[in-house]
Design a protein around this nucleic acid. Sequence first.
DNA 1: CTGAAAGCGCTTACAG
DNA 2: CTGAAAGCGCTTACAG
Lengths: 337, 337
Amino acid sequence: MTVTIKDVAKKAKVAPSTVSRVIADHPKITQETKEKVRKVMQELGYHPNLLARKLVTQSSQTIGVIRKMSSKYLLSDPFFPEALQGINDLLRAKKYSILTVNGEAEDEIYQEVVNMVQGKSVDGMILLYSQYQDPVFDFLVEQDFPFTMLGKPTEHSNKVMYVDNDNVKAACDMTEYLIQLGHTRIAYIGGDPKFEVHKDREQGYRQALIQANIQTEHIFRQEVSKENARNVVQQIMAQQPRPTAIVTTDELRAMSILSALYEQKLRVPDDIAVTAFTNSMLSELSSPPLTTMDIHPFQLGYETAKSLVDLLENPKMMKRNILVPATIVTRESCKKM
Amino acid sequence: MTVTIKDVAKKAKVAPSTVSRVIADHPKITQETKEKVRKVMQELGYHPNLLARKLVTQSSQTIGVIRKMSSKYLLSDPFFPEALQGINDLLRAKKYSILTVNGEAEDEIYQEVVNMVQGKSVDGMILLYSQYQDPVFDFLVEQDFPFTMLGKPTEHSNKVMYVDNDNVKAACDMTEYLIQLGHTRIAYIGGDPKFEVHKDREQGYRQALIQANIQTEHIFRQEVSKENARNVVQQIMAQQPRPTAIVTTDELRAMSILSALYEQKLRVPDDIAVTAFTNSMLSELSSPPLTTMDIHPFQLGYETAKSLVDLLENPKMMKRNILVPATIVTRESCKKM
DNA sequence: CTGAAAGCGCTTACAG
DNA sequence: CTGAAAGCGCTTACAG
């Protein structure tokens, strides 16, 4: 029913191997035969079966992209679509397909990853998160399977290639920016430090305070939700003297805080300053627009994919990690004290 | 190097076909042989090569999910992650893998889709958009390739299965809601009607006005951007008498409008009411929280995937389309006149 | 209940 | 420059 290389060969009166070589545009086939074969391919409506090619070449030309939704809010974080777009663009250019895995349940993800690797469905993997004691990570390291991470690994960092911002520096820079604006009482609202990114940003915040000789730190760790935001805002406002600025680690978190402040009729930036990370469209569209650390999600994704492809093309390459500089974009959510 | 079915067969002293049957848990193999073979599989660390299986069974157990980014802002629209999650969950449960295609350039997407179909890389496809005269759509219909759409097709709607809201009704309901609140001058801000969803929602808006005997319609079609929002708000405010409510068709659009109103120091809902569609976290987190038409993106995605799997399992099934009811969620962005 | 054989649709040394 | 042959790793009638 489907037309195969043999059908083309028969009709063109050549061997199947010749047809195969024409498909690959092999240099040693005469222009004449190529044209003849191509004409027949046209006539018969032939299209190579990729599955068969993959089986014989032992290469799937496919990359698995693993995303872990540790909580519902991560689903909406605009960081991921932008990073995925970067991965997508690079891989498309390099003729790789993308097989996605995303889920909440750790063991579901783990099982899918194992199947993909063992079943030879992918040539490499990209992990979109970095978490302490992650079974997927451990499995890939143990199998010595090619993969790269968007985010700094918590261990084996000499064996694994990753792409990340310098999150310590980024958070430190953001906090320093607020200090320069005259703030001295600055709160920090981030996520669970079992994720490397949150651990680093907390540390950056602390570092800035220390360097500025500020004694009191205000660290809040929470899932993003409206209720949590109300809670934190209440706690912050109850302090004497109260903080005048809030560093948050992403846009949804920042929006939840803006929302809680709005309910309390607190004005941003007049009553309190708020900052975010990521710099997607949300920072620009929120009211007021958010001063944000632009971590360049697209480029992070792009470079993560590029590192993986480089590794696949040259398995013996020296490992290298890439740090994408993060830059502050100032908008109306902060002002000089 | 990699251990195959043959290696297992040899060591277990059975035929390769027997090993294959053990993997498939074939009922006619004795428990005894099964155990023997499984033990050897364990010892050797055998894992079936999925590529080989797919080749011989002529089935990829993979679905292609096509997303088209007609503009940058669509990248950040929280509708998509939620819908994709629904697709993901259903397909995982049914043991299908997901191959994603997304891009801006129409011909790039088209080329990838053709390759996937011709190359037998996928068993079916899901289209996450519906657009007039879309080459991908035409190709799939012409090939009679199994696919379902999230969104109502512009043509061939008898041949194609789709899942959607009743967008005419949803927009009509939303407009009527505002009318019930006492608004009579209501503006509508949506997207290009070449996309079916926007065509329908415009129509629903019109329908509500007609039913309420309101003569003047205010329709704005625009890409989402801060500048466009400023522009539209300016136009709306310049009218005499000016509209007192704005229907927008998604959350990012609504946020851009809130943002422009905020700049103009116009208060929502006191000076003007604003509504949105989708009802992701953004509606809840924006300031003020948005009254939104909940279109249940997760369920839309889930049902779209389910329809496709049903079709694949039973190619002769009667076509059926699914409409997911949309429901208004009221929040603080509207109030009685 | 199990095995021998053919075949899925391709690629790639090896000859000539 | 092209062909015949083997093989990628599986599954599945067909026998027995």
